[in-house]
Amino acid sequence: MTTATATATALYDIPGPRTRRRHVAYGVLSTLLIVALLGRLVHLLLDTGQFTYAKWNPFTYEGIQELLLRGLANTLKAFAYAAVLSLALGAVLAAGRLSEHRVLRWAATLVVEFFRAMPVLVMVFFIFVALRVHPLPALVAGLTLYNGSVLAEVFRTGVNSVERGQREAAYSLGMRKTQVMTHVLVPQGVRAMLPAIISQLVVALKDTSLGFLITYEEFLHAGKLIASNLDYDLPFIPVVMVISPIYIGMCMLLSWLATWVARRERRSPKTQAVEVPPAEPGTLLPGKQ
């Protein structure tokens, strides 16, 4: 059956002619409702004068554009640092958690569990306020500690989900512990976890906006500066309308990449011995698995 409606759920039967007519009626009704809702929103925007020349003109100024671009560049800079460092920290912590030495394993577990249970913002504020660090390093450090810990769990899950036979075969070929890890388990595990890793990077990208709260001059901060300018008639809503599509677009692009990689990896012969989970952000409870 090629019915696109509600594919593969246990909820509905394949609709007959009368049900299909009913569904069409519901469809028309709900479309009207949604359109009415959107119309109300646009009306509200027009009513409060959000599309006036005075509020939108500033975006044609070169200085304003530069300000926004500088903010965007700062956001991407923080993201790049945080991404690279948290991948590195994640690798180190995962190695610790997979280690055969009990002390190392416990230490890594403690670190991972603590930083996963803490709000990122608490760490960022702690580093910023208590350790008196500049905004950018504070933001990057906070993001790295949190995302590194989550990524450690992702790496570990990946390595552990490689079929047992792979490890056994590698040992029986006479490979050493480290060789088994680096040549057999890690490549397959990481490959299978690539979608989850990219999804976690989306979280890191989204969380760079926390820099706004510690006066890091990122994208949102640039927006705030423009929005609170009296000369431009306080263009708050226009600023949100400019900034959010860019922010959301960047995150969507990265999320979409994760889904694409997941689809590719599931077909790839190189991940036959591992199960590739869907590109969802980490759903492990703290203290589990």
Partner: peptide
Amino acid sequence: PVGSLRAFGTAWVAVLRNTPLTLLFF
């Protein structure tokens, strides 16, 4: 089984999941 509701739900999820929470608060 209603197309427009499905589209609304999909859009809701796609947009909100990719919105930085700070931006939403802002």
